[in-house]
């Protein structure tokens, strides 16, 4: 199934520059390149795993347990 897409506007000079940069690189269009770069950046900025699955209540519960056991 093809992913649905949205349009994002970027400055034309930047778009043209990307077109020059990707010549002969294997990227078929500036869009492909931009999607690749954004995915790479977002992948590297994944949420902190210590935080991602906690509600404030859970976090307080864990902190309390750690205090009770003498770790904190």
């Amino acid at each position: 199934m093809k992913e649905s897409r949205v349009t994002i506007k970027i400055p034309r000079p930047l778009y043209n520059r990307i077109g020059t940069v990707i010549e002969g690189s294997g990227f078929s269009s500036p869009t492909d390149f931009i999607v690749f770069v954004l995915r790479d950046i977002l992948g590297g900025a994944a949420p902190d795993p210590a935080q991602e699955t906690f509600s404030a209540e859970e976090l307080n519960g864990i902190r309390q347990k750690l205090k009770n056991l003498g770790y904190l």
């Binding site: 795993p49 210590a50 699955t53 906690f54 976090l59 864990i62 902190r63 347990k65 750690l66 056991l69 003498g70 770790y71 904190l72």
Partner: peptide, 17 residues
Amino acid sequence: ENFRLDPRETRVLFKAK
């Protein structure tokens, strides 16, 4: 029992420390 910490708990511990 006083020394059993799950990964989520050690992660919070390290952060708190």
